[in-house]
Amino acid sequence: MNMELNEFVANFAEQFDDTDPAEIKAETTFRELEEWSSLVGMSVIALAKTTYGKAITGAELKTCQTVEDVFNLISNK
């Protein structure tokens, strides 16, 4: 896993309050995480904007299944 993806996974994991970061990997299907919710989703959207300078839409996020998918979405914008 390259450094950028590694860092993104860590940043993604930080958006969760009650989930062990060790549970969140690049291949994690994030919607299946117990804590995943609209509130966490919004924090991820805010992360994309503030840390990576990219605005992602609901339609775009819906195409993502894994954390790596979200990373690729942001990277390719």
Partner: peptide
């Protein structure tokens, strides 16, 4: 209530 998991990412809620 936003029950469909594919729509629980904040946008539908807002």
């Amino acid at each position: 209530v936003i029950a469909d998991p594919m729509y629980r990412d904040g946008f539908a809620w807002i």
